[in-house]
Design a protein around this nucleic acid. Sequence first.
RNA 1: CGGGGUGUGGCGCAGUACGGUAGCGCACCGCGUUUGGGACGCGGGGGUCGGCGGUUCAAGUCCGCCCGCCCCGACCA
Length: 591
Amino acid sequence: MRVSQLFNVTLREAPAEAEVASHQLLVRAGFIRQLAAGIFSYMPLARRTLTKIENIMREEMNAIGGQEMTMPVVHPADIWKETQRWYQIGSEMGRFKDKNNRDMVLAMTHEEVVADIVRKDIRSYRQLPRLIYHIQTKWRDDPRPRAGLIRVREFTMKDSYSLDADWEGLDKQYRAHYQAYFNIFHRCGIPVIAVKSDVGMMGGQMAHEYMYLTPIGEDTLVLCDNCGYSANRQIAFFQKTPPAPEEPLPAEKVYTPNAKTIEALANYLQVPKQKTAKAVFMVATLPAEDGGYKDTFIFAIVRGDMELNETKLANTLKAKDLRPATEEEILATGAVPGYASPVGLKDVPVIVDDLIPQSPNLVAGANEEGYHLKNVNYGRDYQANIVADITAAQDGDACIRCGAPLRTARGVEVGNIFKLGTRYSDAMGCTFLDKDGVEKPIIMGSYGIGSGRLMACIAEEHHDEKGLIWPITVAPYQVEIVSLGGQQSEKVQQVAGHLYQDLQNQGIEVLYDDRDESPGVKFMDADLIGIPIRLTVSERTVQQDSVEFKRRDQEEKRLISLSEVYATVKEEIDRLHQAIQAKVVEVPFEG
RNA sequence: CGGGGUGUGGCGCAGUACGGUAGCGCACCGCGUUUGGGACGCGGGGGUCGGCGGUUCAAGUCCGCCCGCCCCGACCA
C-alpha cells in the first residue's frame, strides 16, 4: 500500500481526553477514531492488525478442534427470558423493540443462541463433543467506558463454546483452551498470567481470567511470587493470622466524640486498628421464597485493619446484587452510622468475617452517638447469622498455599474461560440421549477474548515515546519503505518503486511512503505507526546501490545492497517470528 | 448512579475575571523555494463558541436548564 493512497491521518497531538499510551498512540497513528463513548471505528491499519489477531485466534481454535460459525447480533428477548438473564441483567443489556413491538436484545454474549441451536440440533451422544466459535460484535452498555479500547461498549469478541456429554469432556476442552489462550497471547506478543476468577453471573464451576499486567489495569490481582498462586482479588484466599488469645474483659462503654471512622477511632483511643471491629452496611438482593427477589439489609463485620470483599460477601449470601446501604437505610434499622454495633441489634442479618471470633476484646460501636464499646467479644456479646471469609486480601498478607507474602498488581482482563456446566442446558432444555438411552443435559463451557482490547494491550506493551512498535505477528505491514527526495530524484523513485513491487511479489506486506513530504515527517510517521522493519531509499543510498535498513525496535541502521534486500528482509522477518515463537510455551495448568 | 473536570475550525489551545460582534499553533488548499528526523515565503478556505431558554442596545463571556466527553468510585460474561 502506498501511503499517498492510504486512508489514514496521523495526528501530531493526541486528543485531550486520551490518557493512556495505547489510546493516544492508536488515535495519533490513525488506527482508531471515536464515535461516542466506548464506540470506535477501526481504520484500515487497525483492521489489518485485528485481522491478524483474529487469524491467530482462528488457528489456535482450529488446532483444538474448533469450528468457526457466526451467530446473530440481534436476539429475540425470549431466549434471554428463558435463562432469566433478561431479568437478572440491568442497564448493561441493550434492549429495544422491533416493529412488531417484540422485545429484542443486542448480543452481550451468545450462550442463549448456542443453547437454542444445540437444543434443536443435538440429540445424541454421537454428536458430542463439539467445539464451536465465532468472532462477533457484542454490545454491553457499560456504565463507564474508559482508556480508549481497554473498556468499550461495542466490541468484537472471539467466543467459543464447548459442548460435552460428561464432565471429563468439559475438563478436557477447558484445559485445551487454557493452553490455546496462552498460545494466542504469546503469539500476539503479550505476557499474560491466568488467575482464578469469580464465576459471576455466568454461573458455573470454574473460571480463569487471562490478565495482562499493567498499572492501567482495572482489576486488582493477588500474586504469590514464591509458589505462583494467583487470583483476582475478588476471590483471592489468604491466610489469616489469629491474634494472641486474651481473657475476655468486661465490656465497657467509652466516650469517643467524632470517631466515626476506624482511623479516627484507633487514633482517639490509641489502639491499633486490628483491635477494632468495622461495621459495613450493605443491601443484598436475595432470592425470596416466592421465587422473586427481595432487598435485605446486611450488617457485615470485619476487623478494623481489613477490608470487606464484596464479591466474597455476595457469594456467601448467594446475593444477586449487593450495594452499600444509604444513611437513611442504616438509620431505619436502629443503627447509628459511625457508631454502629452488632451488640443488641435485632432483626438484621449479621455476617462476620471468620477472623472476628478469634479476635478478642475489640472496640465496636455502642449504637449511640459519640460512644463505642471496648472489649466486645464474639459469642459472649453477640452472635452472627453467618461466619465466613468476607475480607479482601491485601498487599503483604500470607499466601493461602505457602504462607509467603502476597503481592497485589493491576491487570487488564484480555480473556476468560468458564466451565458453565449445565446452567444454560438446564434453563433451555439442551439434552441428548447417552449410550444407555438416558436423557442428559449437555455440559457447556464458554471462552472469550476481546480482539480490540487485545490490540490495545499489545500497543500498551509495545511502544516507546515515538510511537507504536508492532510485533511482527500482528503488524499491519511487515515492512515500510520510506523514499526521500523521490520527487527530485527519478532514480530514488525508481529504486523505491521497484523495491516496493519486488518485495510484494515475494509475498511481503509492504507499506510504501511515497508522499512528497520532508524526511522528518516521513520518519516521524513511520515511528508512530510502528511497522517492524523500515527501509529508507534516498539519493545517498542509491548512489551506493543500497538501501538503509532499520528495525523499529532497534536504534541501529545499516546499509544493505539492493541485491540483498529481499534476503535480509526475509531473514529479519523470520528472526522476529522466531523470537515470538520462542515465547509460545506450554504453561502448567493451575486448577 | 455518586464525586471531580471539561466543551471555542480536523487536533492542541488562548479569549470568559471586567459583555462590545472570535484569535494563535499545527493540519488543509494554491504558487514558489526546500529535501536524512515534524522546512520556509506569499496567498487562501474553514467556527450556529455543545444545545435550549433568559438578562441586555449588545452574550463565547452573565443567569437557568439540558446534553456530550474525560477522570475517580460504584458496576462489570
